[in-house]
Amino acid sequence: MAYVVTEACIRCKYTDCVDVCPVDCFREGANFLVIDPTECIDCTLCVAECPVEAIYAEDDVPEGQRHFIALNAELAKEWKPIVERKDPLSDADEWAARKDKLGELKR
């Protein structure tokens, strides 16, 4: 069971999770991160590090966000690994509490 990055990450892209990942399974897009499900070892370390609580175990992804399971798998094949923490997006704090951000995702 892999972990999944969900909607709360869109337009925030805090990378605290990247620092603690022992297998470098995060992939980076312009305004979102995903987890490569083939690389994730289910260590749970990233969950506590996410300031917007965007990361869930695959079995625990909220019902309205289950499509992020497939989206993480799809985008992980296209995006490059991120292995070091970076600054969040400049307006991340403004977007952190917003809902319904899927339309903001840049592929």
Rank of each mutant, 00 (worst) to 15 (best):
N31W: 03
T44F: 00
V20R: 05
R27Q: 10
A48L: 04
E94T: 12
Y56E: 10
F32Y: 15
R66N: 04
A70F: 01
R98H: 11
S90L: 08
R85M: 08
D91R: 05
D36C: 01
D60Q: 09
C21Y: 02
E94K: 14
L33T: 09
G64T: 01
Q65V: 01
N31E: 03
T44D: 12
R27D: 00
K77H: 09
L75P: 06
V52Y: 11
C43H: 00
T38D: 15
P22Y: 10
I41L: 00
V34W: 00
C21D: 01
A73W: 00
R98S: 11
A70W: 04
I69R: 04
F68N: 13
V83H: 00
E74G: 11
C43S: 08
D100N: 15
K99L: 07
D87A: 15
F68Q: 05
F26C: 02
K99G: 04
I35W: 00
D87R: 07
L75C: 09
E63M: 12
P37N: 04
C43D: 01
D59A: 11
H67M: 14
K77V: 09
A97G: 12
L33G: 08
A30W: 03
I55G: 01
G64F: 13
A57N: 08
S90G: 00
E49V: 07
E84K: 10
K86A: 12
A54I: 09
H67N: 15
D24P: 04
E94V: 06
P22N: 03
T44V: 03
E94P: 06
E84M: 04
L89Q: 06
V34Y: 02
D100K: 14
D93M: 10
A96M: 15
I82V: 15
A96Y: 09
R98E: 07
G64E: 13
D24G: 15
L75T: 09
L75D: 05
D24Q: 13
F68H: 12
F68C: 08
V47T: 11
A54Q: 10
D42P: 00
G29E: 05
W79T: 12
A57P: 00
V47K: 10
V20I: 14
V52H: 07
F32P: 02
A48F: 04
D100F: 08
W79Q: 07
K99H: 15
L45D: 15
P81K: 09
A96N: 12
D24E: 14
I69H: 04
N31F: 05
C43E: 01
D87Y: 07
D93V: 02
Y56H: 06
C43M: 03
S90Y: 11
E63H: 06
Q65L: 08
C25I: 00
K86R: 14
C46M: 02
P51F: 03
I35M: 05
G29W: 11
H67P: 08
D36K: 07
D42A: 01
A76F: 06
L89C: 04
F68P: 12
S90N: 10
A54W: 07
R27C: 04
D24M: 03
E74M: 10
K86H: 12
A73D: 10
G64A: 09
Q65A: 07
I69S: 07
G29C: 12
D59R: 06
L45P: 05
A92W: 04
D42C: 11
L45H: 09
H67W: 13
E28I: 14
E78A: 11
G29S: 14
P88K: 05
A92S: 15
E63G: 10
